[in-house]
Nucleic acid binder design. Sequence first.
DNA 1: TTGAAAGCGCTAACAA
DNA 2: TTGTTAGCGCTTTCAA
Lengths: 344, 344
Amino acid sequence: MTKPVTLKDIARETGVHVSTVSRALDPNARTSLTTEVVERIRATAERMGYRPNRLASGLRTRRTMTVGLMLPDIANTLFPPIVRGVESILEPKGYASIIVNTDGDREREGKLVDVLLQRGVDGIIHAAPYRTDPRMVAVSRQGMPMVTVNRQIENSRIPAVINDDAGGIAEMLRYLFDAGHRRVAHIAGPQTLSTGRSRMEAFKAAVAELGLDLSEHAIAFSSHFDEDEGRRCTRELLASGWKFTAILCANDRLALGAIDELNRHGLSCPDDVSVTGYNDIPFLDLIPPGLTTIRIQQFDAGRMSAELLVKMMTEPEATIPRTTILPVRLIERGSVKRIAPPPS
Amino acid sequence: MTKPVTLKDIARETGVHVSTVSRALDPNARTSLTTEVVERIRATAERMGYRPNRLASGLRTRRTMTVGLMLPDIANTLFPPIVRGVESILEPKGYASIIVNTDGDREREGKLVDVLLQRGVDGIIHAAPYRTDPRMVAVSRQGMPMVTVNRQIENSRIPAVINDDAGGIAEMLRYLFDAGHRRVAHIAGPQTLSTGRSRMEAFKAAVAELGLDLSEHAIAFSSHFDEDEGRRCTRELLASGWKFTAILCANDRLALGAIDELNRHGLSCPDDVSVTGYNDIPFLDLIPPGLTTIRIQQFDAGRMSAELLVKMMTEPEATIPRTTILPVRLIERGSVKRIAPPPS
DNA sequence: TTGAAAGCGCTAACAA
DNA sequence: TTGTTAGCGCTTTCAA
């Protein structure tokens, strides 16, 4: 690499001291200099193609203008919009982000947070935490600005930007109820994740609210938010012998798997069993029968989490809301069939 | 943030000089020290929770162990697998990557490459270059290790890892030909991108090869690789009056748009018009009628580009292949109908 | 308003 | 084998 132009080079060229150059180029310190000098320095800097070395300034100021972004997996379509939302705030403010994928692996998570710390990130946005995550709590306790997005770490003070799981699930169950469904199964997400847990609890609460009397077999627990687990849980539900008319799934991929498994058993969605999803991932509208789901605001969640993080990084004393809950919306498609409710 | 442990702290604790500590912790320099000292230092470092400051070492060694990854848009499902492929190589070697999204905007591209340079990246993997991209060529000429992936910059010496566009298009046209199609339209990608251009040229070459006599209206040029442009180009094709039996699209999203537009005109795919895509993005198998397409190797392309980049960064004198072409595969689904070829 | 000097944490050439 | 010293490029305190 051609040797980059440094402040020293500009100083030599303009005949002033490096510190003067530094000040001239710093929008904040510029006030204490002659306009003439500032202009001359700025001009030569421009001409010489000066580019500040962020490493050096970071070393000195202890602010790297870098944030860490921890995801389960960037290839999961749920997360890229969050990333874009985050960047929409950070990039204009001069922050760059280092993205790491935990693959839902605690050991990897540990290694990766170390990577971020070694690089001196000013803050961390975590989209992949576990419900209990002592490691991250410890890092946060040591003063690293941190916010979680989409998920949250329980019993911690780490601010979280999440979607209205309770509201979304309640609305969905109500919707199924209104369509005549009384025996609704639930494919729950991993209970180690706040989303899996809170949606499952919201399901139970909504069931109670509506006065439904469900079987003990009504809930199948998945170990991953993916199609395979959706299939496996559907088999489990089917095998239990309990007769349900609908499956409310904790996310879209579980639902896609469920529909596929139903088909394999000669059952059709929505004619034999209605199925609902959660998240509204891309392309869902093109996949028959059209999954009725809950749309969450990924981009906005990313955006808000970045806004909170910036505030934490720049105003250490500011009070940050512990939980920010974004509203969700039910998207009606073709995977739910209206049926005659049993006489009550 | 709690003040991190530094070499100096460990030196004070163990009663040796910082440089000794530095050496003890450096796997390469460790040989020249007493095993006893090395062990003692390593133990205290461990105990004190030492974490090397990569900024400081980077400043000194002029190697940040960071690479820049330039994408058009991480939310485009084509790219996350490339990112994962890249990381699969870089992460184990201790590199972190800064991902930026150009949004296909030249001005943004310029700003973002500056961001990367300011942060002293050791190399750049570019998945979003234009066919002609003087800016990036200049950066490369100045000695910044760089490789492009998926696309390439023409008339440059920058190594590129791409997929076999010519082969894929030829195979697809041949496939349509064998299914009886003689009048095949092409929705071309943006001609400012190497993929758009080379697929279009491959289409023309394949047409000549098969001795087809196409209308001057056979090709519609899109300005973006997206559904909307697929729709617009389909309208253009339909309006031209030329009768085609199939549309070979330069990528899947154009094809999805084409199918949608055909439907709006009361035409069905594949019964009235066959349509093919390119790339094989996720979920395509679930969308009716099942797009017949060319599967490219995104993960492997990312992996290989990272391997090349590492080589360039660590062995400046190594010879790097100018172009690495990955094989592609035709995926047969339901969007192509076998028809009776016209008597010839 | 500008300059001098120190130092962020680390590495590496040189000395001992 | 270990210590000394200098310096990467920048910011910032203190002096002038």
